[in-house]
């Protein structure tokens, strides 16, 4: 009959078409499942408006309110940092409060205040990581002025007078001005575990601040009562 052999041929012709249909159905099911599950969050990175830095005025950067008061070069900050012949310390003094109702840790605070374009201030680079040399450099550490101890947790409802510190290579010139960048964050639900977290770091405040040298202004000893 004309049909004999036709079955094999039909099978041979039908198989790839069947696979195609199957793949199509699977892809369609995956797309539908993703859409039903909420779809992909768009990878949007909105450009934040960068406000000019106002010395002495509080800036809300999300998890913290930061007030920048003064910046000075110190050969040593008693109880905090002893400079040597190779390095000097740039200290930004200001006040910090946590905006929320729970403890915020110091790592996020030091990452929130950065120096931009000051020669001789290298970013701390972890092994295996690289950083763009043009990127603003976050503070190395934050210290409480009252006792010279490291501020590793900011408790809600308390105001801290702090020093953000950077080490500068002593071979570089002492800057007369430094450009500060405050990095803001937004409280939103993490797409990974749906917990509320401060995410999306973006510059929100930037501007120049005068840097005073040690000879111009004597360093205050870190008195416990200060």
């Amino acid at each position: 009959m004309a049909e004999s052999g036709g079955r094999l041929r039909r099978l041979a012709l039908g198989a790839p078409r069947q696979h195609l249909t199957l793949t199509g159905s699977a892809a369609g099911a995956v797309v539908l499942a993703v859409l039903v599950a909420g779809g992909f969050d768009p990878l949007e990175k909105p450009e934040a408006d960068v406000a000019p830095l106002a010395v002495g005025e509080a800036a809300d950067i999300g998890p913290f309110t930061v007030t920048v008061d003064r910046m000075r070069v110190v050969d040593e900050l008693p109880g905090i940092s002893e400079g040597d012949d190779d390095t000097r310390v740039l200290a930004l003094v200001g006040t910090v409060t946590a905006t929320g109702t729970t403890t915020q840790y110091g790592a996020m605070l030091s990452e929130s205040v950065a120096l931009d374009g000051v020669p001789g201030v290298p970013a701390e680079v972890l092994p295996g990581e690289t950083t763009d040399p043009g990127e603003p450099v976050p503070a190395g550490d934050v210290y409480v002025m009252a006792d010279g101890t490291r501020l590793d947790a900011v408790q809600p409802g308390l105001e801290y007078e702090v020093a953000f510190v950077w080490e500068q290579d002593a071979r570089a010139d002492v800057p007369s001005e430094a450009r500060l960048v405050l990095i803001g964050r937004t409280l939103r639900q993490s797409s990974i575990d749906h917990s509320d977290e401060w995410l999306d770091p973006l510059p929100v405040v930037a501007g120049d601040i005068e840097v005073t040298e040690p000879s111009a202004e004597p360093t205050e000893p870190a008195e416990e009562d200060s």
Partner: peptide, 18 residues
């Protein structure tokens, strides 16, 4: 380990400061 106040604020321990 944390302290919780009557307003619901939470104050947690850290390594150095707390």
């Amino acid at each position: 380990v944390a302290l919780r106040d009557t307003e619901g604020r939470v104050f947690r321990t850290s390594v150095e400061r707390n």
